[in-house]
């Protein structure tokens, strides 16, 4: 089980290259969303490694919180003056 967790963490570190060297802002947002979902999978697999089922609740709360975070970033983090998402 630990080899799978190590592989997913290495994938997340590879994806962080796009956050450092993204030409524009949506590239960084897509890479951030991908790293967040990978860390959700790491949390679920850690719950199976330690065999404590309370950690699934941590994964659920983290997933809801991260989705709301991405939505708020895509809504408000824009250059104003050219018409927004909701307009």
């Amino acid at each position: 089980m630990l080899y799978f967790i190590l592989a997913i963490v290495l994938c997340a570190i590879l994806t962080f290259y796009r956050v450092i060297k993204g030409p524009s802002l949506p590239d960084r947002l897509v890479a951030m969303n991908s790293i967040g979902v990978m860390f959700l999978l790491v949390l679920v697999l850690l719950s199976y490694y330690f065999e404590r089922k309370i950690f699934v609740d941590v994964a659920l709360v983290y997933g809801v919180s991260f989705f709301i975070n991405v939505l708020i970033m895509a809504k408000y983090l824009k250059k104003p003056g050219k018409g927004g998402v909701g307009d």
Binding site: L25, P26, L29, V30, N33, F67, V70, L71, A74, K75, K78, K79, K82, G83, G84, V85
Partner: peptide, 11 residues
């Protein structure tokens, strides 16, 4: 989330 980011790109 991907759809909202793609429509964010239109700006």
């Amino acid at each position: 989330a991907i759809h909202v980011i793609a429509s964010f790109d239109n700006n």
